[in-house]
Design a protein around this nucleic acid. Structure first.
Lengths: 202, 202, 202, 202
DNA sequence: GATGAATGAGGATTCATTCAT
DNA sequence: TATGAATGAATCCTCATTCAT
C-alpha cells in the first residue's frame, strides 16, 4: 500500500493530508467522475504528477480520503461514547454526534453521502474495512444494551444496527440532497424517540 | 423529453422496454460507468445508434430504467397496501413487499442499491420524482396512523419515513454488497418488531 | 486478431490499406516513437479514433505495416525467382530484387531498416513470422543449390542464409543511414561476385 | 560534451563507469524504452539526479554505453589482429573474436543487437563514430589483402566490409533473438569457409 | 558533489454520440 | 426506422529532468 506507507512517514504526512483535503473539497464540488486529478492538484497547490508520489491512482485518492476521515471520525465517536456508561446514552451520543458532525462538516457529509457511492469493486472493498468498524461499534452498543437488560432481548443486533445506521444515513442524505435547508441537530430528539419507543402507541 | 414521448407511443413501447431491460441487466453486470452504450445495444439486439432514437443519452437510459421500474414497483406496493385498512398493517405490508421484491429481483435490487448512486446532478434530479412518490406513500401511511391514533402522536412523519426507508435501504444494501447470502424475507419480523416497539425495553 | 479480420473484409480493406500507407510514411518521417497516432490519422485523412476500428493499438499498426508490406514483397520475390531454374540465378534474382526494390521504395526501406527495429517483445514476435518465410526462401534456394551440385556441399545453409540476408540488410542500412547517396542497384554485381566466389583469390 | 569531460577526469571515472555498467544491464533487461532512468540509478546504487551529473540525458547514457564498450572492443580486436600478419588470418581473427566475444558477453551482445537500434537521429549519430572505426578496420584489412594479392583485386572493399559486418551482425542477431541456444563459436569455421571461397563450387 | 522530491509536458486510447445510407 | 462506421473531445498517468537542500 503506497498511501499507508506515506501516511505514516511523518515528513510526508503533511503534504499527504493536504492532498486529502484538496480532494475532499474537489470531489464534493465536482463529483468524483467529473473531478479531474488536475483539479485536485491545483487545489492542493502542487503539480499533477506529485499526486502520484502519494497515491497509486485516482481511486486510491477517493479511498484514502474515506479511510482518513472515517478513522478520525471513529476516534471522535469513541471518545463521545466513552463519556457515557448506559448503552442507550451511548447510542444517543452516537446519533447526536453523527448528525451534528455532518451538519458542521457539510463538505464531508456530501462526500460520504454522494461521492463515495461511485461503486467500483475496488472502491467498495477499500471502503468496507473502516465502515465495518463503525458497524461493529454500533452493534457492540446494542449487544451490551441487551446484555444489561436495557434493550429488548428479542432484538437482532444486526438488524438494529442496520436500522440505526440506515436511518442516520438517510436523514443526512435527504439533508444533503435537499440543499441543507434545515437543521440536522434538530432531528436528534425526534429520531431518538422513534428509536427508543418505536412507532406504535401503547 | 424524448423518452417520455416514446414511452407512451404504443408502437415504440415494446422496443423501448426491451432497451430498458437490457440496460438494467447490463448496468447490474458491469456498473454504470463500466457499461458502454454498445453493450446495452448488443444485449437488446439492436444497433448502437438505435438507442438514441429512444433515449436522449446514457444518463437518460439510467433515469428511465429507474422511473420505469419504480413506477411499476409503486403500483405493486399500492396494490399490496390496498388490501389492508390498518396503517400498521399497511406499513408491514410495504416493508414485507420491499424486502421480498428485492430478494426476488436481485438484479433490480443491485441496480437500485448500487448502480443508481452514480450521482450526477442530472441523474439525481431524474430520480427524485418517482422516489418522492415512494417517500410520500410512506409518509401518508404514517400520518394516517397518527390520525387514527395507531401511531404515537409525537412522531415526526418525515423522520419516521426516513427511518423506514433508510432502514430498508440499508438492509437491502448489506444483502446486495454481502453477496446475497441470507434471506431478506427472514429479516421482516425482526425489523417490524423494532419498528413497532423500538429498542428500549419497558 | 482484429486487423487480420478487417484485412480480409473487402469493404474495409481499402481504408485499412490507407492507414497502413499513412503509417508507413509517418513512421519513416518521424520514427516510431516520435510518431503520434494522431499524425497517422491526419495523414490518412481520418479521425484519431477511427484508427482503433482497424488496429488494436499503435504496436499493431507497426506490425501490420510490416506484415502487409512483407507479404507483398515475398510474393514479388517468389515471382522473380520463378523465372529462373538455376539456384544461383535464383539467388542472384533475389539479391537484385532486394536491392532494386529498396532503392525504388526508400520509404519502405527506411521502415524496414530503421523503424521496425524498435524491439519490444510484442513487435518482435509479430515480425518473426513473415521474416522467417523470407529466411526459409533463401535457405531453400541454397539447399537446392547444394543438392544440384551448384553450391559447395560443405556449406551450412543456415549460415549461408545469414550471410546473404545479413549482407543485404547491411548494404541497405548503410545506404539508408548514409542518406541514399549512391545507387543500390549498382552494388549488385560486386556483391554477387563476392557471394559467388568468396574473398580469397585462387 | 558533459560526458566526455567526465569520462576523462580520473576521479569521476569510477562512478561514470559504474553507471555505464548499470545501464548496460538495465537496458538489456528491460529494453531502452521500458528502462527508466530511475532503474539505472537504483542499479548503480546512486540517486536519480546523480545520473545527470555524469550524462546529459537518457540518450547520452545509451550512446556512452555504446562508445565505451565499442572502444574497448576495438582495442581488443586490434590486439587480436596484431598477432597475425596475413590479411586473411587477420580477418579470420576478427570474425572469431566478434563471435566469441558476443557469446561470452550475452548482455553486451543483446545491447548491441537489440537495444541500440532504437534509432533516433541523435542516437544514430552518436553511434556512427565508433562504428565507423570498426568499419574502417575491416576495410583496411581487406584493402591490405587486395594490395598483397591475397584477396581478389576485383573486390569492392566497401561491399566486402558490408558483407563481413552484416553477416556477423545477422549471425549474432539470430543467436540473441533465438535465445542463445547454440554455440556462436561453432559457427566460425562455416562462416569463414563461405567468406573465403564463396557459395559456388568450382 | 549528491540527493530525491517535485515537476509538468506529452499521448495513447476510450466511448458517447452523430449522420449518411 | 434502423444502422454502425466514423468522430474527436477528454484524461489519467508516466517519467525524464530539475533544483533546493
Amino acid at each position: 500500500m503506497k498511501s499507508s506507507k506515506i501516511a505514516s512517514d511523518p515528513r510526508k504526512r503533511e503534504k499527504y493530508l493536504a492532498i486529502i483535503d484538496a480532494a475532499l473539497e474537489a470531489f464534493a464540488e465536482y463529483g468524483y467522475h467529473d473531478c479531474q486529478v488536475a483539479k485536485i492538484a491545483r487545489r492542493a497547490g502542487i503539480a499533477d504528477g506529485t499526486i502520484y508520489l502519494y497515491f497509486a491512482n485516482k481511486e486510491d485518492i477517493l479511498i484514502s480520503v474515506f479511510q482518513e476521515k472515517m478513522s478520525r471520525y471513529l476516534e471522535e465517536v469513541r471518545a463521545k461514547i466513552a463519556g457515557c456508561d448506559d448503552p442507550w446514552e451511548q447510542l444517543a451520543a452516537l446519533v447526536r454526534f453523527h448528525l451534528e458532525n455532518s451538519e458542521q462538516n457539510p463538505v464531508l457529509a456530501n462526500f460520504f453521502q454522494i461521492q463515495l457511492r461511485q461503486s467500483s469493486p475496488q472502491i467498495r472493498s477499500g471502503i468496507s474495512g473502516p465502515l465495518r468498524q463503525y458497524y461493529r461499534l454500533i452493534e457492540e452498543i446494542i449487544t451490551a444494551g441487551i446484555a444489561r437488560g436495557r434493550f429488548d432481548a428479542a432484538i437482532d443486533p444486526k438488524i438494529a444496527r442496520e436500522m440505526v445506521f440506515g436511518s442516520l444515513d438517510e436523514i443526512v442524505s435527504c439533508w444533503v440532497i435537499g440543499g441543507q435547508k434545515f437543521s440536522l441537530a434538530a432531528q436528534v430528539p425526534g429520531f431518538l424517540r422513534l428509536l427508543r419507543g418505536g412507532l406504535v402507541t401503547g
